[in-house]
Design a protein around this nucleic acid. Sequence first.
DNA 1: GCAACTGAACTACCA
DNA 2: ACTGGTAGTTCAGTTGCG
Length: 713
Amino acid sequence: MKGWILDLYPDLNSGKMVIWLKGKTGCYRLREDYEPTFYVHSSKNSLERMRTHYEKRDFKTEFVRRKTDLYSNSKRKLLAVTPGKVFDPRNQLQAISFFEGFNKYRFYNVDIPLDQRYLIEKNIKPFSLVEKDNGWKSLEKETTIRYSKPPLRKTYLETESKSSSYRKKEDELESIKVDEEEIKGKESDILEELNEMITRKDPDILLTSSGDIFEIPYLVHRAEINDIDLKLGRKRSFHPPKSGSWYESYGRIIYKAPFYPLKGRVHIDIESSFLFGEGGVEGLIEASRISKVPMQRLSRRSPGSLINAMEVEKALEKGYLIPWKKNISEDFKDSIHLIKADRGGHIFEPEVGLHKGVVKMDFASMYPSIIDKYNLSPETLGCDCDNYREVPDLGYRVCKDKRGIIPKVVEPLIERRQKYKQLEDKNSIFEKRADILKWLLVTCFGYTGYKKARFNSIEVHESITAYGREILLRAAELAQKLGFDVIHGIVDSLWLKGDKAKVETLQRKVKEKTELKLEKEGVYDWIVFVESRAGGVGALNHYYGVFEGELEVKGLYLKRNDTPDYFKEVQKEILEELKEIKDEEVVESIMMDIIEIVKRKRNELKNREIDLEKLLFTKTTSRKAEDYKHVNEMKSALVQYKDIGFTRSPGQSVEYIVKDSKSSDVREKVKIKEKDPQFYDTAYYEDYLYRVVEEILSPFGYDRKAIKKTART
DNA sequence: GCAACTGAACTACCA
DNA sequence: ACTGGTAGTTCAGTTGCG
């Protein structure tokens, strides 16, 4: 049987792997035997006891010698245990550790997701053409970028309910939209017709726009009430109501929606999926193939977790066993906390004000290229062999002989991305694949410094940035020697003023000296670096200009998610005026026009002529209402959400207008969108107007006070 | 008693 | 279950002044 793997998952009840194979004519469900082995290290007596215990249960056991430690090649004696079925040993092992002491045992290969492990061991990928008879056989070339794809049917599902300002499970269904078709009428009829329609369309991918947060559990609930058997998957699946969770990642709180997978069909919640947002279905296919994580689970995961998946694969390939994460955190935590000399990337402070004829140059995928070129990986660092290289500034020794795990992960990502970037097609498929690979590349660096990561290493993280600083400084030096002015530089980018004819010479010299490719991104007609409010220095990453004929803005209010739309529009309007800055003489007349705009905006605000929607602040909460230390806008908003029974979890966003900025009454300070606010604090919003204008005009000598004064005359 | 100042708390963006 | 670095606002407490 030939086809493409659409999804797979372990079925712990039957002890088999379930694989959904999409063929040219249909989609088939296969159930396969799978016997994953796990390993235990302990004292001789304990292992003997354990062996007896598992043999009584008819598990296969065997003593073996395997590599367990990334940092040495010596092998240890271990007990290999193979249950005759798909099996998750973690709960059991937790209990054993609890009764007999946590340090007594070390477990290996117990927490690699079974679907991914199955694919690795059978050497096949999701969405790649395979043949199944007795075993699995891949029918495509390993590194191909022009791979065949299954004929995929995609359906978009959207529901609407009879509700007022926010949606609840109790609201009756108003209508359902399936692609372009709308189903209306009695709720039970709607649901019956939905079943029919899904069966008729038989999609492979079901897209929703907040299925995990609301729509799937909602539909399940409505179907239950109407006593209808809802069939969203190709096979029935059970969807108990779940609530979302949240977790903290370095001070940032991220909300995690519950997961409602379908059987035999890939459900993607496009709102909850970061990776879908970056590369669409095409991006997910590419990511799924390269990481061997099935699409349905992959769509909910972060780039970091895919990097972890790929690192695990490379480690297994090299013959290492993967220690249970529980053990890892105990062993490695302290060493990670001790060293904190990490300096990050280098920065050339920007020169505040207007510049013309600036070229932007950058190193493509600088950090990943450094990992690749200099072979940086936890197990290649601190090498004691003779063939080594030293990290600049830090002096760490890096092995030149054995290729590291992380470089092995990064190399194909860089190569594939480069190939995709050179290709063009009318549906931008290659572009989407390149976009998703970019995210994996960026994350690869951050993950080396992430303390909960399996293959982290502060020394590797430091080394990458040390090389990065060295390379950026060398490039800047070379640029200066050629007569360029370094206007600004950060991590992997340089803004240069000078003779454009010399750009190619610069590129050649940089390549000779650093081995990395410095690319010319383009030319600014003009660029303005904004002044920092804290002092007269340039604010890093805050600038605007006309780049290759298009307006480019970084870091301004306009780019922030928590800026009300109204102020974003004000900044846009002002920037449109500024587009005409060709020489200093027109500056004055442009300023006059801008002042007129500001006056008009001020009057609109004062006279309450603005649609309140445009004045809404949207912010992401980081904690529960009661955990905010001050009576601030967030607390105020959260309390009101609770009032109406629409509780928001940390990591979810709130929307509100500022009703009385100075008030310390949580029900007066702001008013949430769902309470249909009518009034806003005009003084507060007026002040906000002057702020957003100041941000753009400060390099031309207008501060907040001056703008306020002029606008009010 | 109020304005001015300061530092912590907080959200968000940059590469 | 990606990083460090930085900008800018708001809040609450303290200081300075008359």
